[in-house]
Simulated assay, not measured.
Amino acid sequence: MTATSPAPPRQLAALNPIQQLKAGHLPRRLVQLYVGLVLYGASMGLMIQGNLGLDPWDVLHSGIIKHVPLSFGTVVIVMSFVVLLAWIPLRQWPGLGTISNAVVIGLATDLTLATVDRPDALWLKIVFMLAGVVVNALAGALYIGAQFGPGPRDGLMTGLVRRTGLSVRLVRTSIEIAVVAIGFLLGGVVGVGTAVYALTIGPLLHLLLPLFTVQLRTPPTDAPRPAPRGS
């Protein structure tokens, strides 16, 4: 009996928007994309209602809503398109997943906030916060693994890495420190949930992403690239 070699690990392919649509498994990938985006918005809503701290970009969003007459989800959508403007000098092309990310997550967040009440008990707040982090990682693995392009914020990070030659860690850390600082100055919600998210989202996504990365029929024309994290 001959031994079989292990299957090669699934990689995120570097494809342009047209190639993404022609890469096969379209029904499954579309379902996975939109389930992931809806769950991502729901996870943000859970962390907001837990009120123990938000992820870095949501610290900024929560600060902004204190100064404008807009819902949280609307601010998420508006900021997504503001970030997309920064893609222009970086010569980035948005995919279907990028545009869908910019819209669907904000709508799902507002729906969650409208249907899930904020708990009073501390233990329930902790449950909301932890559930938000775990669901966020699962959601990120689903929509990133569908391979329809990065979200606006991840695309900003990868575009800056490509244009500047700096490391992913340095660029990502710099962006997140900046948005947390601005959000905090605007009155955004910073707390233990912010630290828990920062420390756990990477390992969780690293664990879950290989399980949900769709193996595309069309082989990538470029070398595989590292997986980005979340919206």
Rank of each mutant, 00 (worst) to 15 (best):
S5Q: 09
P8N: 02
R10I: 03
L12R: 13
A14I: 00
N16K: 07
Q19K: 08
K22A: 13
K22F: 08
A23K: 00
H25Y: 06
L26I: 11
P27Y: 01
P27N: 04
V31H: 00
V31F: 10
Q32T: 06
Y34V: 10
L39R: 01
M44N: 14
G45A: 15
G45V: 08
M47K: 08
I48P: 00
I48E: 00
G50N: 06
L52E: 09
L52M: 15
D55F: 11
P56M: 07
H61I: 10
S62K: 01
I64H: 06
L70I: 03
F72A: 10
T74W: 13
T74M: 14
V75Y: 04
F81E: 01
L84K: 00
L85R: 02
P89A: 10
L90F: 09
R91D: 15
G95R: 13
A102F: 11
V104Q: 06
I105R: 06
A108R: 08
L111F: 11
T112R: 02
A114H: 11
A114V: 04
T115L: 15
V116P: 05
V116R: 00
V116F: 09
V116D: 07
P119T: 08
L124Y: 10
K125T: 04
I126V: 15
V127C: 04
V127I: 15
M129F: 00
V134W: 01
G140P: 03
A141N: 07
A141M: 02
Y143N: 10
Y143L: 07
Y143P: 09
I144D: 07
G145I: 01
A146Y: 01
A146P: 04
Q147M: 10
G149W: 09
G155V: 05
M157A: 08
G159C: 05
G159I: 07
V161H: 04
R162H: 13
S167P: 11
S167M: 13
R169M: 13
R169C: 06
I175N: 11
I177M: 14
V179N: 13
A181L: 14
I182Q: 03
G183T: 04
G183C: 03
L185G: 15
L186Y: 13
V189Y: 09
V192A: 12
G193L: 01
Y197W: 12
L199C: 03
L199Y: 01
I201P: 09
I201C: 09
G202K: 06
P203K: 09
L205A: 01
L208N: 12
L209K: 08
P210I: 02
L211C: 12
F212C: 03
V214N: 03
V214M: 07
Q215C: 00
T218K: 12
P224L: 11
G230R: 02
